[in-house]
Amino acid sequence: TIDDAFRAIERAIQAENEGRYREALKHFLDGGEMIVTAAEKEASQKVRNLLLHKGKEVLEWAEHLAEWILE
């Protein structure tokens, strides 16, 4: 659900702030994927587009974090 997705993102932010970057990455990926999944089930085109945009933002952040971890 969207609530689960945002809880995962909150955990990711907390982990990132505490320097637990790999854990943060996992939570960002989980949250982003949950948002995209919820968007695919959404009946309203406007809400679907907003959710897809937010999911994409979260997944892009996860990608940047992963690249930073690997440096």
Rank of each mutant, 00 (worst) to 15 (best):
A15C: 12
E57A: 10
A38R: 04
G31K: 03
E42T: 11
A43W: 12
K46A: 15
E23I: 03
A24I: 15
A38Q: 08
Q14W: 04
F28Q: 00
A38F: 08
L52R: 05
D4M: 09
I35L: 15
L59R: 06
G32I: 15
I9G: 03
R7V: 06
A24L: 08
D30I: 14
A43F: 10
L65N: 00
E33Q: 14
Q14K: 12
L52Q: 05
K26W: 04
L29M: 08
E63A: 11
L50D: 12
E33V: 12
T1G: 11
K41G: 11
G55C: 11
T1A: 10
N49A: 02
D3Q: 14
E71G: 14
G19R: 03
L51Q: 00
E60H: 13
E10W: 12
E42V: 14
I2Q: 01
Q14M: 06
K41W: 07
D30E: 14
K26L: 08
W61K: 03
E67Y: 10
G55K: 02
T1E: 08
R22K: 11
G19V: 01
E63Q: 13
E18C: 11
H27K: 02
E23P: 01
R22N: 12
L25V: 11
R7E: 06
W61D: 00
E67G: 11
E71T: 12
I69C: 11
V36L: 15
E71D: 13
R22G: 07
I13Q: 04
Y21F: 08
D30H: 09
T37K: 15
E16G: 10
S44D: 15
K56G: 04
F28A: 06
A8E: 13
L29S: 02
A62R: 01
G55P: 02
D3T: 13
F6I: 10
K46D: 13
L50R: 13
E33C: 13
A24E: 01
N49S: 10
W61Q: 04
A5M: 06
A38P: 02
R48E: 05
E16N: 13
G32F: 15
A12I: 07
I35C: 08
L59N: 04
A8C: 12
H64G: 05
N49V: 06
A12Y: 03
E16R: 12
L50Y: 11
D4I: 06
V58R: 00
H53C: 14
Q14P: 00
I13G: 01
G55D: 02
H27N: 06
R11N: 04
A62G: 03
V36G: 08
I9K: 00
H64Y: 07
L65V: 03
A24M: 05
R7K: 12
A62D: 00
N17Y: 09
F6V: 05
H64P: 00
H27M: 12
E16I: 15
R20T: 00
E33P: 02
T1D: 09
I69T: 01
W61H: 11
A43M: 12
E33W: 15
I13L: 07
E60C: 12
W61I: 05
V36A: 07
E33R: 15
A39F: 08
E23W: 02
E40N: 12
E18T: 04
A66H: 04
N17E: 09
A38N: 01
F6M: 09
F6G: 02
L51T: 00
E40T: 15
G31V: 12
R48K: 11
I9R: 03
I69E: 02
V58F: 09
H64R: 11
R48L: 11
M34F: 05
V58S: 00
V58E: 02
R22I: 13
W61F: 05
S44G: 04
L52C: 14
K26Q: 12
K46V: 13
A15G: 04
D30K: 14
T37H: 12
E18W: 06
E42P: 02
E23H: 02
L70R: 14
H27P: 01
K56S: 05
I69V: 05
G55H: 11
D4K: 10
E23T: 03
E57P: 00
R48T: 03
I35K: 00
M34K: 11
I35D: 02
F6S: 03
V58N: 00
I9D: 00
L51M: 04
A15E: 06
L52I: 08
E42D: 02
D3C: 14
A15H: 07
L51I: 04
R22F: 09
A15Y: 10
K56M: 12
R7Q: 08
E18I: 05
I13F: 08
E57N: 06
D3E: 13
H27Q: 07
E60R: 11
K54F: 15
A62M: 09
H64A: 09
A66M: 06
E71S: 11
E16A: 15
E42L: 12
D30P: 01
N17H: 10
K46I: 13
W68V: 08
V47G: 04
R7N: 07
F6E: 04
D4E: 10
A15W: 03
E23A: 04
L25A: 05
A39D: 02
E71W: 07
K46W: 14
F6D: 03
G19I: 03
K56E: 05
